[in-house]
Each structure stands twice: as structure tokens, then as C-alpha cells.
Design a protein around this nucleic acid. Structure first.
Length: 484
DNA sequence: CTAGGGATACGA
DNA sequence: TCGTATCCCTAG
């Protein structure tokens, strides 16, 4: 299936609160994941935040998710994030710290982790700087002080009563989903229920799209057409112009029964007509893709999947606790569990959706033979899915393997041929940092004392001087310094 | 981990 | 636009 089509489907499904995360995870496994689509990633992250807060608590994971979203915004050239996001970030950070305020040790750890780690880091480098608000700075200073000064502690305690992380995140989510707008398929899904209708919409006959769509949102496909139109002749034509086009079409005998809409009709009609009236090769290609993919989509998504999920569920419940033990030992062998809220880890190992424990919570009340793990603790039945790179490098676990045996053509879909390219594209280049004379002198001394080529050793020996440098940087700098 | 080539940023 | 500095990728 075409990646674009998969993205449309997933973007649509991600917005469906009624669809449980387990099913979503299964779909993410079998559909080709669009690795290079920022808005899809954002939708995925938003969905994960939804999951994360669905039990009414906030966790540090949320900070990671928000940082990732901000990072994506940044990559798109959106410089500052909106207030609701900043506020949510701040409120969650505050919540996650202050819940430990009565346990000195843990509070200190949390301050270190969140405020000296995340926040401080964000202020120092470009990354995440959009999330730093005045509030955040103020809180940080308070917390730093509270670590040392018990009287400040009291002030902080008083201040925290007005802080509600969960509420802030919910407010942000409302805003974020609103801004993201409906998925492209929402346009189609609103009115298309069978293949014939799909064909109608795509190729011929009246367009009946749009009953459920906000007027101000513009699906990708249409947006690109609009762009083309703008390039050709300025702004998107008003309905009158569209109607004119139709008329012209009719006179040349190419009319396909287009219904010219009434002036009172909603805007989307106009867009639909507009869409239909621009049979560029690109659109034809997309139409063809949609057509050919639709049957495949139906086959994959609608028919065998529920059956596959039922089977997978059976297998999982049969395996029960045995598997959980097995899997945790697998994880131990592979090293420490991955903290998805750590940005440096997230970039290469992002979990698709939180985990299957989260999927189960509140939404579906079955499967009571398996104990429900806490939301904060990582579920041993969870399967992390890398949607941005290295999909195929994950260790297989038995439950997963068992369920995958019943899913149609999973492997083919999981491995993106563009993987390498996309991984490259997504890694952000460090900010260029000029070498100070102190660093240069230290490097000379290091080479003199420890020998050229022992860059790692030199770096470790003078780590405090070579802040934010890697051994490769040292090597490169030496290459520079000794050139000519 | 290191070496070396290539990409990118940045200032003139 | 070009040269240099810095950063990134990857073979070995």
C-alpha cells in the first residue's frame, strides 16, 4: 500500500477516541509508516499524550512528548509554540517535581532531572527553546532555591496549589487537535461507506464530500492543488470561478456531470468541485493510487484485522504471565529499558503508542485474567515500535511474534525502503560552536601528553574544558589545526 | 574508536 | 560565491 494512503488512514484513526490503542498499535505494525511526515508524527504524539493522561494523571513522559512536538514544529520552521503548549509543559514539569516535595531525596532528584536536566538544557541550546516560558524560568528558580532553603519551600507549596498539570495538558490537547484539523480521510469517511461511493468521489459523478468537515481546514490533497492554482493565477478562485470552469468543461464536451453548487452550499462543496476540476497528472495519480489501494485497504484494515486481533488476544491470554516473565528477561538481556521521555533516546527509539496496558484502560473492560499494570510502569507486553527509523532492528518478543503470525504481510510493510534517507533527514545538526583558545590549548596539551589519535582519552581527561565536544570534534579540530 | 571524505554553516 | 571551520557519516 502506498505510504500516503497509509498516512491518511492512520491520521484519521489517530483521531478516533473510540478506537483503542491496541488496535491502533496493530495497524501501525501492518501499515507502511510514513517516516517523513511531520504532521503525522505530531498526530501520533498527540494520541500518545491522550493515552498518557487518560487515567487522570500526568507523568514526565509528557514532557518528552511535548519536546518532540516542539522539535517537529521547529523543524518545520514554526519558531514559537503557542501559550497552551508552554503552559502545559510548565505545569507538567511543576506537577512532576512537586509531587515529591515532601520527600527531600526524591524531590532533589526530580529537580535535578527535570529542571537542571531538561529545562536547563533547553535554555542552553536551541532545542526546545520554544517551550521555555517566563513561568517556567520562574518556577525553575523557585525550585532550585527550594532545594536549599526550606522557607522557599513553603512558598512553592503555596504556589503549587494553583497548578494543575492535567488540566493544562487537556487544554493544550484541545487546542492542538483543533489546530491540527480533521484528517484527510475524515472528509472521505464522512460520506463514503462503500467502494462504489469511493469510486464516485474519486473519479466520476457528484461529489458528496464534506458533511462533517470544518470549513477552515484544508486536506493535504486539496491544499496542494490550491497551491498549484495559486502559482498559476493567484488566489484560490471563488466559487464563481469554479463554476465558470465547469461551464468551460461542458462546452468542450469534457463535463463529467459536475454539479455546480448553490451559493448557499457550504464551502467544502466548492473545494470538492474544485478538486475534481483539476485533473492534473498528479491528481490522476493520487486518484489511481486511492482506487487501487482501496480494495487492499479494505482487505487489510477491515476484514482480516479484527480476526487477527482476536487471535492475537487469544494467544496472549493463553500465554499470560509466562510471556511477561520471558519478555522481561529479554529486555534485561538487551540492556536497560528505554525511557521514551528522554529526547536523546526518543529520536532513535520512539514507541508508537504507550503500551497495551494503556490501551486497555477504561476503554475496554475485558481481559481480566491478566493483571492490569500501572500506567507509570512499563508493561512487559508492550511492544515499542519505531516509526521514525530502524523499524527492523527491534528485538522480537514471543507474544508479539505470535500475534504477528496471524497478521497479513507485516514484515514487508514494516521496512521502509527510504529508511536510511529518512533517518538522515530527521537527525538535527548540532549548532556550530566555535573553538575557544582554551579548548585549542587544551587540545595541544592533550595531544602532547596523551598522544595524537587518542581522542577519546583526551576528551575524557579534559571533559570539563571540552564541553559538548565529541572525540570526533577533537580529531577534526586537530586536523584543522595541523593543516598546512 | 579512529580516520577520512563529504555536507553544512558562516563570514568575507 | 568562495574558503574555512565545524559537524556528520561510515568504512575499517
Amino acid at each position: 500500500m502506498d505510504t500516503d494512503v497509509a498516512r491518511w488512514v492512520l491520521e484519521y484513526l489517530l483521531r478516533q477516541q473510540s478506537l483503542d490503542d491496541r488496535t491502533l498499535n496493530a495497524l501501525l505494525r501492518i501499515l507502511p509508516i510514513p517516516n517523513d511526515n511531520s504532521s503525522f508524527k505530531k498526530a501520533l504524539l498527540l494520541r500518545r499524550i491522550d493515552t498518557e493522561i487518560s487515567n487522570g494523571t500526568v507523568s514526565e513522559k509528557l514532557l518528552g512528548f511535548l519536546e518532540r512536538i516542539e522539535e517537529l514544529d521547529n523543524q518545520e520552521g514554526i519558531e514559537t509554540c503557542d501559550d497552551s503548549m508552554k503552559h502545559a509543559y510548565c505545569a507538567v514539569a511543576v506537577d512532576c517535581t512537586l509531587r515529591f516535595i515532601d520527600e527531600r531525596e526524591e524531590y532533589f532528584d526530580a529537580v535535578k532531572r527535570i529542571w537542571r536536566g531538561r529545562v536547563w538544557k533547553m535554555e542552553r541550546c536551541e532545542m526546545g527553546v520554544g517551550l521555555v516560558s517566563d513561568d517556567l524560568r520562574e518556577w525553575r528558580d523557585d525550585k532550585e532555591a527550594a532545594v536549599w532553603d526550606p522557607s522557599v519551600c513553603e512558598n512553592v507549596r503555596a504556589k503549587m496549589r494553583g497548578n494543575d498539570g492535567l488540566e493544562a495538558v487537556r487544554a493544550y490537547m484541545d487546542e492542538a487537535w483543533r489546530r491540527t484539523g480533521p484528517a484527510f480521510l475524515q472528509v472521505v469517511a464522512g460520506s463514503v461507506s462503500d467502494e462504489d461511493t469511493m469510486r464516485e468521489v474519486l473519479g466520476r459523478g457528484d461529489c458528496r464530500i464534506g458533511d462533517r468537515v470544518d470549513g477552515d481546514s484544508t486536506p493535504d490533497l486539496i491544499a496542494s492543488d490550491k497551491d498549484k492554482e495559486s502559482q498559476k493565477g493567484g488566489a484560490l478562485p471563488r466559487r464563481k470561478h469554479v463554476a465558470n470552469k465547469h461551464s468551460r468543461g461542458a462546452t468542450t464536451g469534457t463535463s463529467r456531470g459536475v454539479k455546480i453548487t448553490d451559493a448557499e452550499e457550504p464551502d467544502l462543496r466548492k473545494l470538492s468541485d474544485h478538486y475534481k476540476c483539476l485533473p492534473t497528472p498528479e491528481i490522476n495519480k493520487v486518484q489511481e493510487t486511492l482506487r487501487t489501494s482501496f480494495l487492499e485497504l479494505k482487505a487489510v484494515v477491515v476484514d482480516p484485522l479484527p480476526e487477527a486481533l482476536r487471535l492475537a488476544e487469544n494467544v496472549m491470554s493463553c500465554m499470560g504471565r509466562q510471556n511477561m516473565n520471558q519478555e522481561s528477561s529479554v529486555r534485561e538481556q538487551n540492556g536497560k529499558d528505554v525511557d521514551v521521555t528522554n529526547p536523546s533516546v526518543c529520536t532513535s527509539r520512539e514507541a508508537a503508542l504507550a503500551n497495551e496496558a494503556n490501551c486497555d484502560n477504561q476503554r475496554s473492560g475485558h481481559q481480566n485474567d491478566v493483571p492490569k499494570p500501572s500506567l507509570m510502569a512499563r508493561n512487559s507486553t508492550a511492544r515499542t515500535f519505531e516509526w521514525d527509523d530502524s523499524v527492523d532492528s527491534l528485538p522480537e518478543v514471543s507474544a508479539d511474534h505470535a500475534s504477528r503470525l496471524h497478521l497479513p504481510t507485516p514484515k514487508r510493510r514494516l521496512v521502509s525502503p527510504l529508511k536510511k534517507y529518512e533517518t538522515k533527514k530527521l537527525t538535527r545538526r548540532r549548532k556550530v560552536k566555535k573553538w575557544s583558545t582554551l579548548e585549542e590549548d587544551t587540545l595541544r596539551i592533550g595531544v602532547q601528553k596523551l598522544g595524537m589519535g587518542n581522542w577519546k582519552v583526551i576528551l575524557n581527561t579534559y571533559r570539563d574544558v571540552f564541553e559538548e565536544r565529541t572525540e570526533v570534534d577533537l580529531k577534526d579540530k586537530w586536523r584543522n589545526m595541523t593543516r598546512y
